[in-house]
Write a protein that binds this DNA or RNA. Structure first.
Length: 556
RNA sequence: GCCCCCGUAGCUCAGUGGAUAGAGCGCAGGCCUCCGAAGCCUGAAGCCGCGGUUCGAGUCCGCGCGGGGGUACCA
């Protein structure tokens, strides 16, 4: 496992700091400060920069530049480090050796599909729960955003060695489902010729409910024609639900997402695990009985918010069951961590869950990624999604229109905590100008270069990468080397959208390089070296697109 | 009222407390006898406002203004 350039610089500067601290008697201050290494925005400031000197200025009561100089002159050069300089106001700028950079090209290509991977999460079993749309209707673009986010996050965690399970939680209990079942029953009876039926208040008048009813009629005929909607509700909810789950699976498949498990809320009630969880909480003194209901106490918690676990009717709340679900995953099912990808409308739920996790002493093993809503624009007009009334845009329709790759890309190009505008016409009309195609084109172009090379009898075999000395070549290497650092950041911060930005940057850098630097040319030695470099770029694009779940075509 | 998220270029979005804020689309102009023009190059254009913390603020804090989402013994 080779370290990143950042690791190299971090170690070198940290050693320099230690040496300076010992020599000049800085004492604890010199040891307490963290050595942060960043990539300067301006190339003139080197490959990496450290700001420790400025952070030490106050405790040491010395000018930051003086401190920077004391550290910089004690950093050992060589072994990848070309130069270290202290500059105003107190930055320590570090440059990497060109030869070291060039050599990384061999290291990267040698690593192949292992490039950027680490084993830092090896042995960890992590569940990523996402989408989990209510099974009362098809997947729309409004509830689709969690799909790519969760899927890519799962990819990244697996990239670092974790055993990841993608889970889809099915809310197959509760009053929503009852209303849904009654709506289906009404449609079923209508199809049987019964008149004067009405869809219940807060029910589901949408057209797809008729489709569900028709499917039930096709399978069971008029077997239920004598029932009243209230009597049929539960049975019809089950029958319709199975169909809806299939819709969801199909939509996700189209989206390039496959779940390892579909977990039903009702299984927690049937297994008795919900009751066991309540008992455990009660034993821990976290339960309060009030007004005939069972509450989770909120004192000593992270958030000042109370929650009902069991209604006074004796029926568990969604939250109560969800709590049991989380406990089971972390305690019984052997997951070291559980990550939930939820829509912004669940933030109240998330706050309650934070309390619950604390009560169960599971905090730290659970984290939620909240994503804001998608505003969907159709012909420039905002489409309000109201699924139960039949007013929505199907995820599948969008995928059919713009393709899986573009759809995923669009959902992944903005940070999760930001509302996202999805303009369908824009995505369709500009499909050739689309950023996803821009990146894929770079990959196809690289494949094409190798085809051309092969026709001319050239290859990268036996390349001497030390010939890579041009600034343009080395800049490309620097950018490629950022990939492992990015993969680590996403592992920790779950900001998966950075991958699209990085892919664009790398593709853009490659396109520019390609324009002004001939890869396959007369100078065979140089061609070999550049082919090797281009190989590394192609590999990195493939790794990035792979994590994004976007295809990397050989031609297009 | 209270809680959460967001206000960055005409539009859609990046931007780990750092040193001259980026990209795509759109707009104005240029580039194919040469590895793919789904490309490249040049240009115009931007941090909602006021305070504060900091050596340093688009980034952190407070207040305001604007947009979105919550605030059920719904899911």
């Amino acid at each position: 496992m080779t370290g990143t350039g950042r690791d190299l610089v971090q170690a070198a500067v940290a050693a320099g700091l230690l040496a300076a601290s010992d020599a000049l008697g800085w004492g604890d201050a010199g040891r307490a400060v963290a050595v942060e290494i960043e990539r300067p925005a301006d190339k003139a400031h080197g490959d990496y920069a450290a700001n420790v000197a400025m952070r030490l200025a106050r405790p040491l009561k010395k000018p930051p530049l003086e401190i920077a100089r004391a550290i910089a002159e004690r950093v050992v050069l060589g072994n990848g480090i070309a130069s270290v300089e202290a500059v105003a106001p107190g930055f320590i700028n570090v440059r990497l050796e060109h030869a070291w950079l060039a050599r990384q090209v061999e290291v990267i290509v040698g690593a192949g599909e292992r490039f950027g991977r680490t084993d830092t999460l090896t042995g960890q079993k992590i569940q990523v729960e996402f989408v989990s749309a209510n099974p009362t209707g098809p997947v729309t673009v409004a509830n689709a955003r969690g799909g790519p986010i969760g899927d890519v996050l799962a990819n990244v965690l697996a990239f670092h060695g974790a055993t990841v399970e993608r889970e889809y939680y099915i809310n197959d209990a509760g009053t929503q489902l009852d209303v849904f079942g009654r709506s289906v029953a009404v449609r079923y009876l209508e199809l049987g010729g019964k008149t004067g039926m009405t869809i219940p208040e807060d029910g589901y008048p949408a057209e797809y409910v008729v489709d569900l009813a028709r499917a039930i009629r096709e399978e069971h005929g008029g077997a239920f024609d004598d029932g009243a909607p209230e009597e049929l509700a539960e049975r019809f909810a089950r029958l319709a639900l199975d169909q809806v789950i299939e819709w969801h699976k199909a939509a996700m498949r189209k989206f390039g997402i496959s779940f390892d498990a579909f977990y039903r809320e009702t299984s927690l009630l049937e297994s008795g695990y919900f009751n066991k969880t309540i008992e455990a909480l009660r034993a821990a003194g976290e339960i309060e009985d009030r007004d005939g209901a069972v509450w989770l106490r909120s004192d000593d918690k992270v958030e000042d918010i109370e929650s009902v676990l069991i209604r006074k009717t004796g029926v568990p709340t969604y939250f109560g069951v969800d709590l049991a679900y989380h406990r089971e995953a972390l305690i019984e099912r052997g997951f070291d961590r559980k990550i939930d990808v939820w829509g912004a409308n669940t933030h109240g739920h998330a706050r309650r869950m934070t309390n619950a996790m604390k009560a169960l002493e599971l905090e730290g093993r659970w984290v939620v990624v909240l994503y804001q809503y998608v505003k969907f624009l159709h012909e420039g007009v905002l489409v309000n999604m109201a699924r139960r009334r039949g007013q929505f845009v199907l995820l599948e329709d969008v995928i059919d229109t713009v393709g899986k790759d573009v759809s995923r890309w669009f959902f992944l190009m903005a940070g999760a905590d930001r509302t996202l505008d999805f303009d369908l016409e824009l995505a369709v009309q500009q499909s050739n100008e689309n950023p996803a195609y821009y990146v894929q084109y770079a990959h196809a172009r690289i494949a094409s270069i190798f085809r051309t090379a092969a026709e001319k009898g050239q290859s990268s075999t036996g390349a001497d990468v030390t010939l890579l000395t041009d600034p343009a070549e080395l800049d490309l290497v620097r950018l490629v080397l950022r990939f492992p650092e990015l993969a680590l950041e996403i592992r920790d911060k779950h900001n998966v959208h950075l991958l699209t930005g990085y892919a664009l940057e790398l593709a853009g850098a490659f396109h520019a390089f390609y324009k002004s630097n001939r890869v396959v040319g007369e100078d065979v030695a140089r061609s070999k070296a550049r082919l090797r470099l281009v190989e590394a770029v192609g590999l990195t694009l493939r790794q990035t697109l792979g994590l994004l779940g976007v295809s990397a075509p050989e031609s297009m």
